[in-house]
Design a protein around this nucleic acid. Structure first.
Lengths: 147, 147
DNA sequence: TGTTAATTTATAATTATTACAAACAAGAAA
DNA sequence: TTTCTTGTTTGTAATAATTATAAATTAACA
């Protein structure tokens, strides 16, 4: 996601008002790489500004999504939508043990689909989810005995 | 998914009972390629057996998932989990207009991730979602005038 | 055919998210 | 700076998907 000030600027250009709540949410999200859920974002906002409501968090997330600053990643582990602050096209790594979600940096191309396998679809983009075990969970595996 | 009788056999081997409800759900699912939601499956079961409860549908879907006969595909369009009756590894095509979901037949390999891009993950499998427009929606586009 | 344990059912509980309407505040205008 | 207008926030209620629970039912076996 862009810097807080960039987003503030874009919100103002669109005629949106800059409230302390919105600014705080921008600050918490810009630079975040953890792909938090709405609830996690709400919790973080709470510690900084205890009176912010869930609704405001949801609203702001929706506005940022519409503006293309955020992308929502459909429910992977039934804990809700996870937000990706990196709006450029990229793939993801999902830890099947702890549900961590990481970006695959850089450009990795998905394969082209041959026409006979494309079912007539006109393909516009693609997204690869790599499932596996993150480094932290690999450590625990060796250290913590049998599963 | 396997044939109804194969699944019945596997359920019996596990000591599960074969009820008319379960058998009907197996029948409706085996051979299905539409990636229905739990609610859609419930509706279809209803037309054949009006007294089946949602809970039974959900329970049976969970049992089939645990047994590996079904795979749940996390929420793509906020209408709930969609069930894939094809348990072998394959990729998907998602229509961004009508939310249709289709299998990519055969083996299409996702790219290997270079170590410097893998974030330390041990990768176990991967799944590519191709986003685009299905043939039906392409037809409507040309026929139905401006969007 | 009777027994028993699994299954089904209806209902209530949970969880993520959206809708709503009243209270409030940002930013433009005076 | 004060006022005004309109967008924003908030708390609460509504939705929707799914899970938990406990009583009633029934499949499978003896």
């Amino acid at each position: 996601m862009s810097s807080t000030e960039d987003i503030v600027r874009r919100f103002m250009q669109k005629g949106y008002k800059i409230t302390p709540q919105r600014r705080k949410i921008f600050e918490l999200l810009s630079g975040d790489k953890s792909h938090p859920t709405a609830e996690e974002i709400y919790q973080r906002v709470q510690s900084a500004m205890p009176d912010v409501s869930r609704t405001t968090v949801y609203n702001t997330l929706r506005e940022l999504s519409v503006m293309g600053e955020l992308a929502g990643l459909g429910d992977l582990d039934a804990s809700g939508v996870r937000y990706d602050t990196n709006p450029s096209a990229h793939h993801h790594l999902f830890c099947v043990r702890c549900n961590a979600l990481a970006d695959v940096p850089g450009k990795v191309e998905a394969p082209e689909l041959a026409p006979e396998v494309r079912a007539g679809y006109r393909i516009e983009k693609s997204q690869i989810m790599f499932y596996g075990v993150c480094p932290e969970c690999q450590n625990e595996e060796t250290g913590a005995g049998p599963c």
